[in-house]
Design a binder for these strands. Structure first.
Lengths: 163, 163
DNA sequence: TGTATTAAAGACAAGATTATCCACTTGACT
DNA sequence: AGTCAAGTGGATAATCTTGTCTTTAATACA
């Protein structure tokens, strides 16, 4: 039982975008920065676009931009776009007498999902960025890694943009 | 994001068995009672057997029996047998500088998984059975349902055992 | 010892998730 | 308009989860 790959990818992408406000990031840039396959990433981002969490722009200087204030954007909204937290509202066994109420087992399972939901709802992207842990703001760019990544990126095909 | 089918099935089966102490339940009885496919159920139960949560006995009067005291048996142990709660112990992106500590994003994700784990660990099977809700102890047998189920079961092939 | 009953194990099928690729559209900038 | 750089959408493949079936092994009982 884990956060799905797709949800992971979506969260990484949004956090990355939140660190690049006003700079549209191409699929390639996002894929490099978040270590997600560039061919799969668009599939992950499309639901986020439809939900208004990010905007996409085609053509030169296009890419994805965060459309929401990071401080008002919860992790729950993001995961719910791509892999919704499924609450249990009625007994999965269709049993007579379980109309409104859940049996103890499914009550317990739904409580667990509710906890998960709460944790995700209480964390905003903005709050993540402001945490000053020793490691890094997001999940990337310690000095060594940054130089490696940009080296790899420019080696591929990117012009030496200032980044 | 939800509890997997397999984990659901395992939990249903264990709760069912906890309600039938000392009466080995055959795959068919368990499948009827928990509404799990009788051809899939054995696959779900085998890991529970290996973990010592239940015992199985072949032959006449065989079946599955709960091997543990329901009050000492947590939901976490059960789900961990078939669909382990995966904690995040190191950054999924292999980044330099993230040896011991998680970045804020993965810290948050792991916190959510920890909450899930805690909820499951704090609920025992015994506690579920003792809850006296209006619905029923487990997820089954309101009077109407019981008669329907036993009717269906005996219609299939079971001799009119006293049950 | 033989037979009926039951779980165990493994091969296989169906479905969902994850991932790849290509043709197409949009947009910016000559 | 023409051209290049991007995202969009659809078809397809690979992998994992879920489910089925058949054969085998164990157990009880006559």
């Amino acid at each position: 039982m884990a956060v799905s790959q797709t949800a992971e990818y979506a969260l990484r992408a949004v956090v990355w975008l939140a660190q690049k406000p006003g700079e549209p990031q191409t699929t390639q840039q996002l894929a490099d920065g978040t270590q997600v396959s560039p061919s799969y990433l668009p599939k992950v981002l499309q639901p986020l676009g439809r939900a208004g969490i990010l905007t996409s722009q085609r053509g030169i200087n296009g890419g994805y931009t965060l459309a929401r204030d990071p401080d008002g954007l919860t992790l729950l909204e993001i995961v719910n776009c791509v892999d919704p937290v499924q609450r249990i509202t009625r007994c999965p066994l269709k049993l007579a007498g379980h109309s409104g109420m859940l049996c103890p087992l499914h009550r317990a399972l739904d409580d667990a999902m509710a906890e998960l939901e709460r944790t995700f709802r209480e964390t905003t992207v903005g709050a993540l960025l402001r945490e000053n842990t020793s490691v890094t703001p997001l999940c990337d760019m310690s000095p060594a890694t940054v130089s490696l990544e940009t080296a790899a990126a420019s080696a591929k095909k990117l012009p030496p943009t200032s980044n």
